[in-house]
Amino acid sequence: MGNKNSRSKHERSVIKNIQEFNQIESDQERHEKLLEYYFSNDTDFMDRLHVFHFLRQHVFQSNFSSPIEDKLIEGGYKVLDIGCGPGTWSLDLSSKHANSNFIGIDVEPMFPHEIKPNNVKFIEADVSNGLSFGDNEFDFTHIELMRLIYTSDKWDFIFSEFIRVTKPGGYIEVSGRRNEDVVRAPIYSKLMDIVNISGTKRNLDVNLIYNLESKFELHPNIENVHRIEKKFIIGPNGDKIGLITQDLALTHFKTGPLSKILPEEMGISEEEYKSMIEKDLTEEFEQSCSESIYVRIWAQKQLM
């Protein structure tokens, strides 16, 4: 459960930092400030998710690609963030758009429970079990980085839920990382291949990002499907973004389930695996130009 006071302190810190960053008038200065702050931050799991949010925001120069900015500014807009994690995306947007409302859901309740703006609500829920909201309830439905969460047989139902709860004329946006046709140095390429192989063994749709457009287009009440991709280099050759991504990648491989799954899949000891990540992979990032590509796909629900 954790210490209540520690959790509240962390929640206050997240809100305070987002509010301070949003006071910076220049978008470029704001993005640079975010990068400087998060590159110096520690790397526990929740902080890494915060970093991922601001990294993607910097790469795309926005929190979303759907054409909804004017509606958010106008107010009265209702937004659903599925798989919200610690709630960084919703908190960031809610601090800028006080007259719109945001709901974040996640199966793991790592989001703020006490300290949050009045226009944000977080709910512990699993989208694969169905959403508790009514039909046509949200103006914008958003989901990120969940291709390795749900098995392939669940995604058709999950997509139908996205569409069901979105209002006619509203937008649905899904984003993630593209793993095929990406330039990668040998060690990083091998690790990512094994991650995909392991995911496939667990019946995860590792190619979900490639199938999104066709999934949208299968629904008769969906139109105006769009796609945008942003590419950058991992490691020092990718400048500050590359250094942040390298730090995230190394920590991702060294901690959590991957630190147990990957050495077993590779047939090596955990000590050998640790050395490969800390020494070999780090050196490879420094000497190579491995790519990372983020994708956003968004579509509009037809007006009735």
Rank of each mutant, 00 (worst) to 15 (best):
V206I: 15
S288Q: 15
T88I: 13
H50M: 08
E161D: 02
T88G: 11
N179Y: 09
I222V: 15
W155Q: 01
E271A: 09
N118D: 05
V120R: 01
N3L: 14
D42Y: 12
N3V: 08
S198T: 08
G267D: 11
P67F: 14
F216W: 00
F159L: 13
I82F: 06
N224V: 11
S160T: 02
F159E: 09
K33R: 07
H58A: 13
L303I: 11
K260R: 13
F122T: 00
H50Y: 10
A185H: 11
G267N: 10
L212R: 00
G170C: 03
Q61N: 12
Y38K: 05
I172M: 12
E32D: 14
M192A: 13
E69M: 15
M276Y: 01
S175R: 07
C289Q: 12
E36F: 03
I209L: 09
I73L: 14
S292Y: 14
G170S: 04
N22T: 02
S152P: 02
E217S: 06
E74C: 05
S160V: 01
S65K: 04
I209A: 12
A125N: 13
L262H: 00
N136I: 03
M46T: 07
L204R: 05
I163F: 13
M46Q: 10
K16Q: 07
D139P: 04
E272W: 01
L49A: 07
D92F: 04
A249K: 10
H53D: 00
S26D: 10
S62M: 13
I244K: 00
S8Y: 03
G238W: 08
S65F: 02
Q302S: 14
E217A: 04
S6H: 13
I233V: 14
F216Q: 00
P263C: 11
H113G: 15
G76C: 02
N118A: 06
P220D: 11
I123A: 01
N99D: 13
F140I: 06
P186W: 01
T151Q: 15
N63A: 11
E213L: 03
I73Y: 14
G130Q: 04
R164G: 09
L55W: 03
F138N: 00
V59T: 12
R164P: 09
P257L: 02
D42I: 01
S8E: 07
D44S: 11
P168G: 02
M192Y: 08
I261H: 03
N129F: 13
V14H: 04
H10I: 08
E36H: 04
D280A: 10
N237I: 06
T43V: 12
R12N: 06
L248E: 05
D280N: 09
Y38C: 10
G83L: 08
R7M: 13
I228V: 14
Q19R: 15
R7A: 15
G85H: 12
E137V: 08
